[in-house]
Computed example of a mutant assay.
Amino acid sequence: MKTEQVAARLVELCRAGKFEEAQSELYADDAVSLEPEGSPQGAGGNVKGLAAIRAKSHQFHDSVEAFHGVTCTDPVVAGGWFSIVMGVDATYKGAGRIAMSEICVYQVRDGKIVHEQFFYDVEAPAA
């Protein structure tokens, strides 16, 4: 698949809440996943390999009591890279309801996602 096709499929699956299916179908076995420096412990940190990415995803989902909504923009593609903005409104165990937004950047090689990196505020933004 070309980058545009991978991006469109990822958005389709994310909008349907099928994150695990997206990982199984679209990610390379040696993909890496990066969080911002100083990100909260529940974010799972930086990991390498599809098994570690799945474990990170399960850790995130285990921290959630209830999802109230997930949004995902159309992708912006440049060569082998694409980005989306994802929003998650969820009630987290011990933290209450939080709505957050992040920029997600992906690299595609040989039809598979090999790199994902997330950008979001790790502290509340100044007013």
Rank of each mutant, 00 (worst) to 15 (best):
P36A: 02
Q41Y: 05
A52C: 12
A7T: 01
G96D: 09
Q117N: 01
V108S: 03
C14W: 14
K112Y: 00
Q59T: 11
V32W: 10
D29W: 00
A66D: 06
A99P: 00
M86P: 00
Q59I: 06
F82M: 10
L10T: 07
H68L: 02
A52R: 13
E12I: 11
S83G: 14
D121H: 05
K93C: 04
R15D: 12
G45W: 09
G69W: 04
G87T: 06
D30E: 12
I113V: 09
V70D: 07
D89A: 00
W81S: 06
L34K: 14
D29Y: 05
A66K: 13
A126I: 08
R109E: 15
A124W: 00
G42W: 14
Y27K: 01
I84S: 02
F60C: 03
R109C: 00
A16C: 09
H58S: 14
F82A: 01
I103C: 08
V70H: 11
G38Y: 02
F118L: 10
S63D: 10
V64K: 00
E25M: 08
C72Q: 03
P75G: 04
Y92H: 10
F60L: 11
F82V: 08
S33T: 08
D62A: 15
A55V: 01
I113F: 06
G69E: 09
G94R: 06
G87C: 05
V77L: 09
L10Y: 06
E123S: 01
V11C: 11
R9Q: 13
G111H: 06
E37V: 05
R109K: 11
I113E: 04
G94E: 10
A78M: 05
K48N: 06
S24L: 14
P75R: 02
A124V: 07
N46D: 14
V76Y: 10
I84P: 03
E102Y: 01
E65A: 10
V77D: 11
G87S: 01
N46R: 12
V77R: 00
K18S: 02
A31W: 09
A28C: 06
F118D: 07
N46A: 04
A124R: 09
H58Y: 13
V32P: 03
E4G: 02
E35P: 01
C14R: 12
Q117T: 12
R15T: 09
C14N: 14
Q107Y: 01
A66M: 03
M100R: 05
E65R: 11
Q59Y: 10
A7E: 08
I53E: 10
D29A: 14
Q117D: 03
S39W: 02
S33G: 10
A55F: 03
A28H: 13
A95D: 04
F19C: 01
A52N: 13
I98T: 08
D110P: 01
R97V: 01
A43H: 00
T73F: 12
I53D: 11
I113L: 01
K56H: 15
A22Y: 08
